[in-house]
Amino acid sequence: MSGEKHHIVPYRLYFVVLIALLALTFASVWITSIELRDYTVAAALLFAIVKSYLVLNYFMHLKYDKPYIKIMVGFVFAIFLVMIVITFLDYLYR
């Protein structure tokens, strides 16, 4: 079963991804330091989501994995979102 050859990711790509991640980190520090009031968290989370997307796809090789693994990962994040939404059905309307 070890016949399946892995995709070898070049070092350079990892470095490029790192630069992108660092840029996003500083961007999120910057954007949260200006007064956006209610949108601060939303902005910070947006950057975090983009960063996690990069980590999942490149560092964790999800981009090169078979579809069923991608589906599983997507499913787990969906379940987590649903869990939050349902919990908030209680807290938002109390």
Partner: peptide, 19 residues
């Protein structure tokens, strides 16, 4: 290790960046 990183990516803004 990437998982550890992934979690930190969310912990960081939620604790340090909510001014």
């Amino acid at each position: 290790w990437h998982l550890v990183d992934l979690i930190w990516i969310f912990l960081f803004p939620l604790f340090y960046l909510i001014h």
